[in-house]
Structure formats: C-alpha cells, structure tokens
C-alpha cells in the first residue's frame, strides 16, 4: 500500500455572511481510500464538497485535491475529479451511450478512444441491450450505476459521491457499492456522503461533521470502540445529540 495523499484540507473555512458553514476543517484522504463524509442535514457537508470540487471559493484555509490547489488550479482540478450527486447529472433524453460519449467529449477524450471505452462500460454494466434506449426509461438503480460510470469515465483520480444511493433497493445498493470497491481497488479515491449509517461501515475511514466542524475522524471500528457502541448509527447519534 502506498500512502500518497489524494485530498488534503487544512483549516478549510467557508462563511456565508455571519454564518460559518464550514469551520476550519482539516483532514487528509489517501489514494485509493473510500472516505465517508458524514454529518446531519445542514452540518456543512455540501458546502465542503463544493469547495473541494472547486465550485465554491473558500473564505479561509487551503486544500489540495489530486495535488492541485482548489483555489488556484481549478481547471486542472476539475479534469482530475469526477462528481455524482443525488440528482445524477445524466441527460434523461439521451441514451446511455450518448451520455457517455458526451461526458467523454467534454473531458477531452479523443473520439477514437471514446467509442470502444463507452462500449466496454455499457457491456460491463449489463446495459448493452439498452444502450440506445433513453435514460429516462431506465430503472433508478441502473441510472445510478450509469451515473457513476459517467462520473468516472475520464478516469479521474478522485470521485466525489453526494448521497448516491438514496431510494434504491438493498440489492442494487450493494451492487453499487461493489462498483465503488472495484474503483477504489484500482486506485481511485472515493469521497462519499450518505445517510445510510450502515454504509458508513463500508468506508475505510469516516469523518462526522457537526455544525461546520469535523467532530470525529477514524475507521468505523475505532469509532465504535471509542464511543463504546456497536453500530455507526449510535456513534452518529452520540456525536450529534
């Protein structure tokens, strides 16, 4: 195992007027790690992710993602990350193939590469038969898998997943996690938020945010030990109450 750092944040802060949404958070994520970024509604998770993706300027502190400064090197930064949100960024009125081709195109992959690569992804997802159907006709679970493939189509070093699994059935959710594991295994760093505490256990390490600050950061096992409870759910409850 190498210990390259994929994400490093030092005193990262964001204020909206008098309100401090993210308050001096510091952490680092290793390459190939699955990092769970948890917190209650309104704890500042989304703001933090937006800053790490270079979509929002921090009010203070610094951070680098994939070796690029999130403040100054946003261009290079964005080419090296993938992002998937709750309302996945798929075009419903395009086919899965067209979606992949489009994202490949905007990330500047050569046309010659896009086609075989898109075909390989579709075959792997088991979407080959449906490659020319509109995305809107696909079941939710497949859309999620496709959205993840789209987000990682340009082989980014880091993929940000913002509550990617809400509302899908338990089997599909596990298939989705299987994809995440696989990507992490191949060296992609995964940064994920979720409301399913049980999913937090799938992460290598988790951080729990409470009103803008990171209150706990460790492996699920150690956190449970530290708070003397048997599940992440209880860790979460103890911390946020």
């Amino acid at each position: 195992m190498n210990h390259e750092v994929a994400i490093r944040a030092e005193g990262l802060t964001r204020k909206f007027g008098a309100f401090t949404a993210v308050d001096h958070i510091s952490f680092s994520v290793e390459k190939g790690e699955i990092f769970g970024f948890l917190g209650a509604n309104g704890a500042g998770k989304t703001t933090a992710i937006k800053m790490l993706c270079g979509l929002l300027q921090p009010s203070g502190g610094k951070a680098s993602v994939g070796g690029f400064d999130i403040f100054r090197q946003t261009g290079q930064l964005r080419r090296n990350i993938g992002y998937m949100s709750q309302r996945f960024s798929l075009y419903e009125d395009l086919s899965p193939y067209e979606n992949l081709r489009f994202y490949g195109g905007i990330y500047g992959l050569p046309r010659r590469e896009i086609k075989p690569k898109a075909e390989a992804v579709l075959k792997k997802l088991g979407l080959w038969e449906e490659k020319d159907q509109l995305v809107s006709a696909l079941p939710l679970g497949w859309k999620q898998k496709l959205a993840f493939s789209v987000a990682s189509f340009h082989e980014p070093a880091i993929v940000f997943l913002d509550e990617p699994t809400s509302g899908v059935d338990p089997v599909t959710r596990r298939q989705f996690w299987h994809m995440i594991y696989e990507a992490a295994h191949q060296g992609t760093t995964i940064f994920i938020t979720t409301h399913y505490m049980e999913e937090a256990e799938y992460c290598k390490r988790v951080s729990i945010m409470v009103s803008g600050r990171i209150q706990a950061l460790d492996t699920p096992g150690k956190l449970k030990e530290q708070y003397q409870v048997s599940s992440m759910d209880e860790v979460f409850l103890k911390l946020t109450r």
Partner: peptide, 10 residues
C-alpha cells in the same frame, strides 16, 4: 424520513 439525517429520523 427521506433526505433526513439519522438523528432527525430517529
């Protein structure tokens, strides 16, 4: 409870 954090859910 969809989209609500675990504490509020409880």
């Amino acid at each position: 409870t969809t989209g609500v954090d675990p504490v509020s859910r409880k």
